[in-house]
């Protein structure tokens, strides 16, 4: 018995150590970014680099946030990410539901094609999208960029939602239909509430994909719809790299997604484990 207790304690200690290592590995870059954003300009470029600065300054934040176009770029990033997430969910939820409930061969082909689309490099569709959006008269708008971002997140959204719907037994739909629901009614009133955690996870992935996306933002926006990742990258110029301002703006830009993740944490965990016990 004592042996079992000792072994249990050892295993728990090893687990905690592993968790601590993983947390440090994931967390250190972000912590380093935060610490750098409070360093003086000279300390940000020190060789060898130091983790902690000898002085605390908000100068980098003042420079970064005072730069022309930063506030507008935040609004653009938010609008684009929200819109892109909405487009992804509106298309992915019914698509995934149909695939899991009707189980037709074409549905299986469709989901495979979605996966293949996910593998296509973004730059390949970049050039056609530039021409297409210009012809449609929506070049340099958040709407165009959101549509482009949705092309990136949609395949993953469909796959995620498919796995979440798969975990919900068909009997639930049948019961809803017996109670008078149509197929869509069963989806809206019964199945969707059950997979709300999965929807939250999918929404977060879609939101993050758009929030952090760089290439399409670079190719498809100019003045009106430019997003923050481009503004952050603009701190690196041919004439030098303004590490302090770059890290300050990156830190500010991280706040919404960190908050979003904290707020939706419960749903995310629930969503990630939703399909885990499927028999």
């Amino acid at each position: 018995m004592n042996g079992l207790v000792v072994r249990g304690k050892t295993a728990r200690t090893v687990l905690w150590v592993l968790l601590a290592v993983v947390t440090v590995l994931y967390g250190f870059p972000f912590v380093y970014l935060l610490l750098t954003s409070f360093k003086t300009p000279l300390e940000t470029i020190a060789v060898p680099a130091t983790v902690f600065g000898s002085e605390f300054t908000l100068e980098n934040y003042a420079t970064a946030l005072g730069r022309e176009g930063v506030i507008a770029s935040f609004i653009n990033s938010t609008v684009t990410a929200v819109l892109s997430t909405a487009i992804s969910l509106v298309l992915a939820v019914p698509a995934a539901y149909a695939i899991t409930r009707y189980r037709t061969p074409s549905g299986q082909v469709f989901i495979l094609v979605a996966l293949v689309c996910r593998m296509v490099p973004a730059i390949v569709v970049g050039v056609p999208l530039v021409s297409l959006f210009r012809d449609l008269g929506i070049a340099d708008t958040s709407l165009a960029l959101a549509i482009a971002h949705a092309t990136l997140s949609l395949p993953l959204s469909i796959w995620l939602m498919t796995s979440f719907f798969d975990a919900v037994p068909d009997e639930l739909d049948e019961a809803a239909k017996i109670d008078g629901c149509s197929r869509l009614g069963a989806l809206r009133r019964v199945v969707l509430p059950v997979v709300s955690g999965g929807v939250a996870v999918t929404a977060i992935f879609a939101f993050l994909a758009s929030w952090n996306e760089f290439l399409f933002s670079l190719l498809l926006t100019s003045v009106r719809a430019q997003t923050t990742p481009i503004v952050i990258a603009n701190f690196q110029t041919q004439f030098g790299l303004d590490w302090g301002s770059m890290t300050a703006l990156a830190a500010v830009y991280s706040i919404p997604v960190v908050l979003l993740t904290l707020v939706l944490q419960r749903h995310i965990v629930a969503g990630l484990t939703l399909g885990a016990v499927k028999g």
Binding site: N76, V223, R224
Partner: peptide, 9 residues
């Protein structure tokens, strides 16, 4: 907002 973007100009 999406139709315009916030950058103005």
């Amino acid at each position: 907002l999406a139709g315009c973007g916030a950058g103005g100009g």
